[in-house]
């Protein structure tokens, strides 16, 4: 188990809860957190894979995408892979990161509330 920064010195756990200092996770609170994180990650993942796999699909089946120059020697395919794809990645990573931070904050409070309700103590 990780015990590199001393935090685990205060950790205790059993089959239904984990305590870190004053803070407790129960399996109910973790399930709520898990479902919300899964929804966020898999929504972004679906967009990421749809766009990323669309590029080779268009390269195979849509001539206007891969063979018609639109700016100097650039085709839409070359322009997207060499430049626009990075802008797509940066936008995805930034918005995901911000939303995940926000979700973390919400879930921390939510988990604390659920735990307090279940254990009857202040989480």
């Amino acid at each position: 188990m990780g015990d590199m920064n001393g935090k685990d010195a205060v950790r205790t756990m059993n089959s239904t809860s984990i305590r870190h200092g004053e803070h407790v996770d129960t399996i109910e609170s973790v399930d709520v957190v898990f479902r919300a994180q899964r929804k966020l990650s898999f929504t972004y993942g679906a967009v990421f894979f749809a766009v990323t796999l669309a590029i080779p699909a268009l390269s195979v089946w849509w001539k206007s995408w891969y063979a018609v120059p639109i700016w100097g020697g650039f085709t839409a395919n070359y322009l997207f892979v060499s430049l626009l794809y990075y802008i797509f990645l940066w936008t995805m990573a930034w918005t995901y990161s911000k939303q995940a931070d926000k979700l973390d904050e919400q879930l921390m409070h939510m988990a604390a509330d659920i735990t307090a309700a279940n254990t009857g103590e202040e989480a």
Partner: peptide, 24 residues
């Protein structure tokens, strides 16, 4: 047998709440 404990370690937030509280 301890799958719930494992699940809480992967997705739980108590550790991060604790770290945040103590500036870790």
């Amino acid at each position: 047998k301890n799958v719930d404990e494992i699940w809480m370690r992967i997705h739980g937030t108590a550790s991060e709440r604790h770290e945040k509280q103590h500036g870790l």
